[in-house]
Design a protein around this nucleic acid. Structure first.
Lengths: 163, 163
DNA sequence: CAGTCAAACTTCACAGTGCAAGTAAGCGCA
DNA sequence: TGCGCTTACTTGCACTGTGAAGTTTGACTG
């Protein structure tokens, strides 16, 4: 852990601190949220995001690729997630009338009820683990910082339009 | 997405912004780092953490449970990770002479060489995705914020002693 | 109006992960 | 010393996620 090339200086103490803590966060936060959602509502964090994303559109309906972008995942994963959710009756898939290649995923009434039932406890957990430990100023700082990193990971990412 | 109980107020705009961006970050950052390490060095982020953790101890040797705590994971996972790494000759397992229940994982010379080879490019990627997009002040803010959240996830967590 | 290319999604095989149960070693106490 | 309890780790099973290949549909071009 000593040698490093000329063009990539090693991490100083503050940088190392920030990175180690962020790494630990990214390893454990999704696990905790998954556990809570699985235990209380029988769903994954990814599934929650899908339900949530669909519920916020006017017609409760999004293209698969939009859902994938929205959750930062890749098409094959979204395909399987939606398939599982369809088998539980939370969403319905149908071909896009405007583009035969696309598939639309639509939130069912059952899916909406499930989301409404799951949301309060999930929000409570997010508050407990993420927002409550921070000051108001830190919440704003976090939004700015995470936004910068998200852009660095994928400069093309935009919160996609609602169809 | 409308009803919420009395004791858990809904997220305001800044809070929602911070949470959505952090969620996206936790979903994608590990994937990007895993991809880079897998492509350039044939290892996982978790495996890098293990190599890195071992290399920083005086005798390049840690107990399994310490490794698990260090990386925020659980014993079964660490058991399999170290098993894989042992099969590649990067670490060696041996019983702890001081406590027959414990297993020690020791970094081999080969493992050390692999780590030294992998580190520069990995650090470069961490800089590119996490540190470079931030100002110096934001790096310090990130360390504080991530520390608070880590503590909220597990109040008992301490960076464990070096055996 | 073919023929070719690109896009959107799905399917499949494989590796990685989490949980629950199991095993082995130390500790405490009569 | 022998019994029970705790700790540390491992194993087995079910599930999820990833990447590569395949299929269908749309778009473009000569």
């Amino acid at each position: 852990m000593s040698g490093s090339p000329e063009d990539t200086p090693w991490l100083d103490e503050t940088e190392l601190d920030a990175w180690v803590r962020l790494a630990l966060l990214t390893l454990r936060l999704p696990l905790e949220l998954d556990r809570q959602l699985q235990r209380d509502s029988g769903m994954t964090l990814m599934e929650y995001f899908v339900l949530s994303g669909l519920s916020e559109t006017p017609d409760r309906c999004l293209r698969m690729s939009t859902l994938a972008t929205l959750t930062g995942s890749q098409p094959p994963r979204m395909s399987q997630v939606v398939r599982r959710m369809e088998s539980r009756g939370w969403v319905a898939r149908r071909p896009d009338p405007q583009d035969g290649r696309s598939t639309l995923a639509a939130l069912t009434d059952k899916g909406h009820r499930v989301l409404v039932a799951a949301a309060p406890e999930h929000v409570r957990t997010v508050r407990q683990l993420v927002l409550d430990p921070l000051t108001k100023a830190q919440v704003a700082q976090l939004a700015a910082i995470a936004g910068r990193i998200d852009t660095a990971i994928d400069p093309d990412y935009r919160l996609p339009p609602r169809r």
